Amino acid sequence: MSISTATSPLRRWLPLGAAAALAAGATLVLRNVSPYASGSPLPSCPLYALTGLYCPGCGSTRCLHSLVHFDLAGAMAMNPLLVISLPFLLLMLLYGAGVRLRALDPLMRVLANPMFWLVLLVGYALLRNLPWAPFTALAPG
C-alpha cells in the first residue's frame, strides 16, 4: 500500500469533515450568542464599519443566527445570497469528496468555475448597495 493510496480518502473527505466541524461549532456558538445583543462578542463587518458599504458577506452572522433558530424569513432578510448558496456549497463539498451524481455534472462545472463566484459576489455587492427598490431588499435588515 503506497502513501498516496492511504491518504487519498483522507484528502477527499477532509474538507467535508472540516466544514462539518466548523458548522457544528458555529451552530453551538450561534445558538447561545446573539449578534443582536449589545456588546456581542461576534464580529461586525470591517468594510461596512470603514466605508458604510455592504460587502457580499454583510449580515452573514445574523443570517446564520436566524437559520440555527429556524427563522428562514429572518435569514433571508439578512443575507439572501448566503441562504440560497448554502445547499450549493454543500453539493460542492460532497462533489469534492467523491459523491457524484451524473445529473449534476453540468451544475458542478458552473459551480467549480471561480469566475462564476467572482461575478456573482461582485454583482451582489454592487446591487445590495443601490439605494432604490427592489435592490434595497438585498441590504441586511
Rank of each mutant, 00 (worst) to 15 (best):
L14D: 10
L14R: 09
L14C: 11
L14S: 13
P15K: 11
L16D: 15
G17P: 11
A18P: 10
A18D: 06
A19C: 13
A21H: 13
A24E: 07
G25D: 08
G25V: 14
A26C: 14
A26T: 12
L30C: 12
N32W: 14
V33K: 10
S34L: 06
P35W: 07
Y36C: 00
Y36Q: 10
S38V: 08
G39D: 14
P41W: 07
P43W: 05
C45E: 07
L47D: 01
Y48W: 13
Y48C: 07
Y48M: 05
Y48G: 01
T51P: 01
G52P: 03
L53V: 02
L53H: 09
Y54C: 03
C58Q: 01
G59K: 01
S60Y: 02
S60M: 12
S60T: 12
T61K: 04
R62L: 04
L64F: 12
S66F: 04
S66T: 01
L67H: 05
V68C: 10
V68S: 03
F70E: 01
L72D: 00
A73E: 00
A73G: 03
G74V: 06
G74A: 08
A75K: 01
A75Y: 00
M76R: 04
A77M: 00
N79Y: 00
P80D: 05
P80W: 04
L81K: 03
L81Q: 04
I84M: 11
I84S: 10
S85G: 07
S85M: 08
S85I: 01
L86C: 10
L86H: 09
P87V: 04
F88P: 05
L89Q: 12
L91T: 08
L91Y: 08
L93T: 08
L93P: 07
L93E: 08
L93Q: 13
Y95F: 12
Y95L: 04
G96V: 03
A97W: 04
A97D: 15
A97Q: 11
V99F: 15
V99S: 15
R102I: 10
A103P: 00
D105S: 14
V110P: 14
L111V: 15
L111A: 13
A112Y: 13
P114R: 14
M115N: 09
F116I: 06
F116H: 05
F116R: 04
W117T: 01
V119W: 14
L120D: 08
L120I: 05
L120T: 12
G123C: 07
G123Y: 09
Y124W: 11
L126S: 02
